[in-house]
Design a protein around this nucleic acid. Sequence first.
DNA 1: TCGCTCTACTTGCATATTGCAAGTAATCTA
DNA 2: TAGATTACTTGCAATATGCAAGTAGAGCGA
Lengths: 168, 168
Amino acid sequence: MRETILPRPRRSGCPINLTLEQLGDRWSLIVIRDIMFGNRRTYGELLAQSEEGIASNILADRLKRLTAAGLLTRRPDPGHRQRGIYSLTEAAIQLVPLLAHMAAWGRRHTRPSKELSVRAELLEKGGASLWNAFMDELRHLHLGAPRPARSVLDELQRAYERAVARRR
Amino acid sequence: MRETILPRPRRSGCPINLTLEQLGDRWSLIVIRDIMFGNRRTYGELLAQSEEGIASNILADRLKRLTAAGLLTRRPDPGHRQRGIYSLTEAAIQLVPLLAHMAAWGRRHTRPSKELSVRAELLEKGGASLWNAFMDELRHLHLGAPRPARSVLDELQRAYERAVARRR
DNA sequence: TCGCTCTACTTGCATATTGCAAGTAATCTA
DNA sequence: TAGATTACTTGCAATATGCAAGTAGAGCGA
């Protein structure tokens, strides 16, 4: 049974605080990151391919919350009626610059693994024009907008694969 | 007695994840925001002037954690030996663009109060050059760098006060 | 149509984190 | 030296997280 999620009262009207109230926990942005950069669209994909090993109940909870908050939408898979396909909303797509900055900060001030920071580096070097191209691509993949010429997702994926290959 | 904080094992080497492991909770960035934008430097100031009403034990815990993580430093107040004065480190100062993006996202996708989003608006419109000026000012206030000509803190504060005055 | 497998979640329970209220000891002030 | 402040702690209830197991469809092959 789908339980209702009781909304917490807002702590203040500060926009930083309100962003934190929606996304300030240890998993919400991980889920969005995986849908966004990993193009994982279903519960099963998100669970099985989770780099951080998210627990199944937490994933279910976050998918519910993020959908309720207007960051994700869920539509049934026509070929498999039990399955839901999750898409980013425009609000979630506009988190691209935020995630890019988080990646850039993490690259500088934590000790990330080499392979996993290749994407972050590319994202940082590409700057706003790359982010915009990526957002256009996400609008195509998630909102049905026309397919743009450039696929940033492919670029990131290829860079990552080169890094993994170089490793050996 | 100061308890030791047991470090959690890292979930993955992804830089976004590592940033989240340090800052992905409901209070850490609020504390940094208040030190950064509100220039609150002591426990008492942070507690009493907290817009969101942080609990005293959570504040104490976060000050410890953030200090251990290298985002804050604590030095004793020469005029009041019990009191600690907290300063941002360079790593924390480099969160300015991240907080600016959080503020911008919150302004667009949540329902912030008008007065409190004035600063966010200014921060967004000012862009990277404003952020850099602000970071220089923070390096002066927290790291002993020379005082820059421009005070972004003053500009933000005046804009906020004008907004509050306009309200009446 | 029967049974098998797969999948999208739930559920139960232990542990960790949060939040409130109260407490304490060190410091400052008169 | 007495009283007020301040910088935290502590106790406890409520909530969130994490692990392991369970369940109710749905798809599929015979």
